[in-house]
Design a binder for these strands. Sequence first.
RNA 1: GGCGCGUUCGUCUAGUGGUUAGGACACAGCCCUCUCAAGGCUGGUGCACGGGUUCGACUCCCGUACGCGCUGCCA
Length: 470
Amino acid sequence: MRPDIRVRFAPSPTGYLHIGGARTALFNWLFARHHGGTFVLRIEDTDLKRNTEEAAAAIYEGLRWLELNWDEGPHVGGKFGPYFQSERTEIYERYLKKLQDDGHIFEDQGALRFRSPREHVVVDDLVCGKIDFDLTNPGTHPDMTVRRPDGSWIFHFVNVIDDIEMKISHVIRGEDHLSNTPKHIELYRALGATPPRFAHIPLILNHDGSKMSKRDEGARVAAYIEQGYVPDAVRNYLCLLGWSPKDNREKIDIEEVVKLFELEKINRRNAAFDRDKCFWLNGQYIAQMSLDRFVELAKPFLRQAGIIAPVGGRDSVEPTKSIDGSAERRPTDEGYLRAVLAIVKEKIKLLSELPEWTSYFFTEDYEFDPAAAEKVFGKSEAATRLSALREEFRKIDNWNAGPIESTLKALVQKLDCKTGDLVHPARVAVSGRSVGPSLYHMLEVMGKERVLTRFERATAKFSKLPGVSF
RNA sequence: GGCGCGUUCGUCUAGUGGUUAGGACACAGCCCUCUCAAGGCUGGUGCACGGGUUCGACUCCCGUACGCGCUGCCA
């Protein structure tokens, strides 16, 4: 434990959490956890006093989703609060008074400015190394404003004061602040405070190298939540942007990263966000996670799609009307849901793909993809073969993938056709789609009765009007 | 413009004076196969450029180019 190590993530409540901000938060969190220090969340709402809580909600949501829990800050408190800058005015007044008394402040048309000592300032950065800034020229480095005429505060000033007050030991932030750092150090010195250690981490850019702005797709953490990314995967990917375990591992547990993480090992170059790799990593996480975890993550997406009941607590599958108007008989238990999810788990890369991959398991009113129907049932033998397959399936007593497969294969021999000649019609018949999970497992999960019913219906549907488009 | 940071396959990276420059994603081909994936195998593409230093530079130094950031009474 290193109680002296205190870091903070200090976002402005803009109404969303930027992916770059998320990584800054992540690196702060990793550093704190690595050393057993404290991770503080501070909301820098100097500018916008209204709707702060609302705008900050997206930040909380993003951080919680990534499981970057803060030790001090909004909701959890702490002995260095308040953690909203809008509530710290007296503190800033006090520091301003001190600077004024010491002659560091002068008025400029109503605004207050800090008079620079006009010296060289060396920033000894943990990531970038020692950098010498020449602040002697007022033309290139004007005295910074600390308070506007209307009394509102400027970021540089309150940021430094809060870091002093909150006893921040290491400032880990985006490289866009590197050039501001010498100014901040001047402030620390004028206040007689020891500056914290600084670590400026590289920025995240778009894939084409341009700066990622809030408008860019993928800039908001919320977008990943909506698209069905797994938090562990996104967090893992973010770890790899500017940091590396150096042993060629890509998928790496967060506990392991906490163990290995060091600021000195962070890259200095900006990194482009590679959506493909993040997507791939997400698939890896889904394929390798436990079924329990997958079910837990899948439920919100299934609820939203109306596939399972939108109630909290119980996720029973509600009967809906089938095509002929009678109430469907289908399993309403968790077991069926788990069985369905188990066979699509290794197939999907995003949780948002779940509805299209699972809806037909839960309703008789599933759509038939016209292209798939045309391709498979365009051949006149398809319906006949499906009918024959139904007859063979009808005889199966132990309805499991094994017997289902051997029965189908036996019929292939008998009819002297290819496996696909039976598999494809069967797949389209029960799902309406040409792609899906392993057929035999899918049929097993659906249950014999349901499969036979669907086969029958599809046979009728596709043998009636040969040649007519579906 | 000034100041600062950066520059290894398309992208993320390993590499710190002597390597056939390694891995991953993406891409192409093959295998597997009931579809789609997954998995396996194979392949191509890289040290921005120019000077130094050195027996020897991807590795060190200087310059150029390019990229990014800062240069606000934004954060």
